[in-house]
């Protein structure tokens, strides 16, 4: 299948690949998807005391569109507050990357990853807000 230039660009030069300590107080980790479905995204955000996302890292197992969606999201969340990050919609991701209809699920997964990372950070900080997305894997 043909990929858009932006997908190829992110695939070839993925931004912010890597990991933060998932137990660190200022880190929120969201892992969504499942190996059986062919994609797993892990998005991590590092949040300042003021509640601003200072840095983000990702790793993704999945197709080129899944890799590009998560790479893009790490760029977009930086500098945003948690609430602003939660406003990122899958449709914006899909539009930016010119994803074809069969790849829309990749953008949905990326949006879910943001929600999961924010929810994880908030749960560490005693927030009662529950924004658990559908696809969060549960560690034993």
């Amino acid at each position: 299948m043909a990929y858009s230039e932006k997908v190829i660009e992110h695939y070839e030069n993925p931004r912010n690949v890597g990991a933060f300590g998932k137990d660190d107080e200022d880190v929120g980790t969201g892992m969504v998807g499942a190996p059986a479905c062919g994609d797993v995204m892990r998005l991590q955000i590092k949040v300042s005391a003021e509640g601003v996302i200072e840095d983000a890292k990702f790793k993704t197992y999945g197709c080129g569109s899944a890799i590009a969606s998560s790479s893009l999201v790490t760029e977009w969340v930086k500098g945003k507050t948690l609430s602003q990050a939660l406003e990122i919609k899958n449709t914006e991701i899909a539009e930016e990357l010119a994803l074809p209809p069969v790849k829309i699920h990749c953008s949905i997964l990326a949006e879910d990853a943001i929600k999961a990372a924010v929810a994880d950070y908030r749960s560490k900080h005693g927030s009662t807000e529950t924004e658990t997305p559908i696809c969060t894997p549960v560690a034993p």
Binding site: A19, V32, G33, A34, P35, A36, C37, V40, K59, H105, L109, I134, C135, T136, P137, V138, A139, P140
Partner: peptide
């Protein structure tokens, strides 16, 4: 990365989507 760290992927409850 998880496998490198010795995590058994089978032990994780993945949510199919």
């Amino acid at each position: 990365e998880m496998v490198r760290e010795g995590i058994d992927l089978e032990s994780i409850q993945w949510a199919a989507h």
